[in-house]
């Protein structure tokens, strides 16, 4: 009879979690720290190690969402990862150049991101390296374009 896992009081405050990250990953830039919120910007190369570190040591158990955003000249993939023990939600932005939008997949770490990454690939065309089966989830297979990109004008002949 498994016991109930309880998250009543946060173990560590937001500040010392961010200090851990600053010390461990100098190249990660901390944009803003608010009560129960943390905004980071990570370069593409360091991102997977940051996630591993957050999952194992800082006990970030849950990946809420993977959001691709098309900023005309570059892509940004925004990850929302929340830690229930410390009552924190971290927003990690990763910038990707427009010509090769690839980033490491975090599905091996958090299974919840599986379909989010497939949807990001399907609607925005961001390729996630290491994803178990990266194929389209919403649109049929033979579609060649990605509708959520800004250069996709609505209503053109498909």
């Amino acid at each position: 009879m498994s016991q109930v896992i309880v998250y009543d009081s946060p173990d560590r405050s937001v500040e010392d979690v961010t200090n851990d990250i600053r010390s461990k990953f100098p190249s990660v830039e901390v944009l803003k720290v608010a009560p129960r919120r943390m905004h980071l910007r990570a370069p593409r190369e360091v991102f997977l190690d940051l996630c591993k570190f957050m999952k194992d040591d800082l006990s970030f158990e849950h990946n809420s969402c993977v959001t691709p955003v098309d900023y005309m000249d570059h892509f940004t993939v925004v990850y929302h990862i929340s830690s229930w023990t410390n009552h924190i939600m971290a927003e990690v932005q990763v910038d990707l150049p427009r010509d090769d939008p690839t980033v490491d997949s975090i599905t091996p770490l958090w299974g919840g991101a599986n379909w989010h990454e497939r949807e990001a690939y399907d609607l925005m065309g961001v390729v996630f390296k290491g994803h178990p089966d990266l194929r389209r989830i919403m649109l049929p297979e033979e579609f060649r374009f990605h509708p959520l990109r800004k250069d996709f004008t609505v209503g053109r002949r498909v």
Partner: peptide, 11 residues
């Protein structure tokens, strides 16, 4: 499944 996670209490 035995995980006491409710956003009304957590956040």
């Amino acid at each position: 499944s035995g995980v006491d996670m409710d956003l009304r209490r957590l956040d």
